[in-house]
Computed example of a mutant assay.
Amino acid sequence: MRRTWVLLAPLVLAGCIKDSESHYIDGNEHTLSVRVAQDYFWKDSVDVTVVAARWPDCQRQFDFGELPVGQMELELFAAGENVYSFRAGQRTWQLETRSCTLLPTPAPEALGEPVGVFRMGEDKFVFEKAAGA
Rank of each mutant, 00 (worst) to 15 (best):
Y40I: 05
Y40D: 06
F41D: 09
F41A: 12
F41W: 15
W42N: 06
W42K: 07
K43S: 06
D44F: 11
D47M: 04
D47K: 07
D47Y: 03
T49K: 06
T49E: 09
V50E: 12
V50D: 07
V51L: 11
A52Y: 15
R54F: 02
W55M: 15
P56Q: 08
D57N: 11
C58H: 07
Q59R: 12
Q61Y: 12
Q61A: 11
F64E: 07
G65H: 01
E66C: 01
E66W: 00
P68G: 01
V69K: 14
V69M: 12
G70N: 10
G70I: 03
Q71T: 09
Q71K: 14
Q71H: 11
M72R: 12
M72W: 02
L76C: 03
L76W: 00
L76P: 00
F77G: 00
F77T: 00
F77P: 00
A78Q: 00
A78R: 00
A79N: 03
A79F: 00
G80P: 10
G80M: 13
G80Y: 13
E81I: 03
N82T: 10
N82M: 14
V83P: 08
Y84W: 09
F86T: 15
R87N: 06
R87C: 03
R87V: 02
R87Y: 02
A88G: 04
A88C: 05
G89W: 06
G89D: 03
Q90A: 11
Q90N: 12
R91M: 04
T92R: 06
T92I: 02
T92Q: 03
Q94I: 12
Q94H: 10
Q94V: 14
Q94L: 14
L95S: 14
E96M: 05
T97L: 10
T97Y: 03
R98D: 15
S99N: 09
S99D: 12
C100N: 14
C100E: 03
C100D: 05
C100H: 06
L102M: 15
L102V: 09
L103Q: 07
P104R: 13
T105F: 08
T105S: 10
T105C: 10
P106Y: 00
P106V: 01
A107D: 07
E109Q: 12
E109N: 10
A110T: 10
A110L: 07
L111C: 10
G112T: 02
E113C: 01
P114Q: 09
V115E: 02
V115L: 08
G116R: 01
G116V: 02
G116W: 01
G116K: 01
F118H: 00
F118W: 00
M120Y: 01
M120T: 04
G121F: 04
G121N: 05
E122D: 13
E122L: 11
D123V: 15
F125H: 11
V126S: 10
F127M: 11
